[in-house]
Design a protein around this nucleic acid. Structure first.
Lengths: 115, 115
DNA sequence: CATGACTGCTAATAAATGCAAGCAGTATGC
DNA sequence: GCATACTGCTTGCATTTATTAGCAGTCATG
């Protein structure tokens, strides 16, 4: 009984693509990846190679490492500096810390590597 | 006219394997990758997937990112901090800087990510 | 000499990646 | 109504990855 469904990277890519208001075909054109394959990737049917992920990341302005992490190709890298500092800050309430952390996380998942 | 020869990752893997005094078969056993495939990878005949590179990196105690960079899957990440600091240090001679830099480079290419 | 345990490499096959062609559905203009 | 352009998805196929089985060579031990 095999349920391949590997939605992790796929759904993330779909989110980012829709966030950029791009169609599958448009993204296909930008990345050089065929549109049916992108469709299958987003639905978790196929497991894209690192090369494909890389071009997708570039087109969506996402860090390549982030996509690799989502695909299980790379261990999530700790950024203990900011996280630790927030956690240990005495002047912030728990909910403030949580909010700050969310914003921080959204930054590091979406920001592209500065060339 | 096809000259596949992609010796870059391959020769690096071979160096690291021999440095660890491991046979291809032994490495195959450690990584779960078949020994003929390892042979082909080291000679640049085949282009291993990220998953394979990852298990090789783990077995050879190399950082996964390093192997990805060698394979062209990831842009080499600059570590300007230490390099810059060494270069700008006024108390070091040129040859001392060079030696220090060599040691530093050997660390970042060989050190495994601390779990 | 022969047997066994190594070394690495070649050949054939299974499985997966990735693409070209084409299908259904919706929206806009004529 | 009909054409055109868009949306995403299914099918079939070429290419590549990765494995199992097996071959030639070297070295040590009986």
């Amino acid at each position: 009984m095999r349920t391949p469904q590997l939605p992790d990277v796929g759904s993330f890519i779909r989110e980012q693509r829709e966030r950029s208001a791009l169609s599958i075909r448009k993204l296909a054109e930008m990345t050089g990846v065929s549109n049916p394959y992108l469709s299958q990737i987003e639905r978790g049917i196929r497991r894209p190679s690192a090369k494909i992920l890389r071009s997708i990341a570039e087109a969506l302005a996402i860090r390549t490492e982030t996509l690799y992490e989502r695909a299980g190709l790379l261990d999530p890298v700790e950024a203990p500096g900011v996280r630790l500092a927030i956690a240990q800050d005495m002047t912030l309430t728990a909910s403030q810390k949580q909010a700050l952390m969310e914003i921080y996380k959204s930054f590091i998942t979406n920001d592209q590597e500065d060339s």
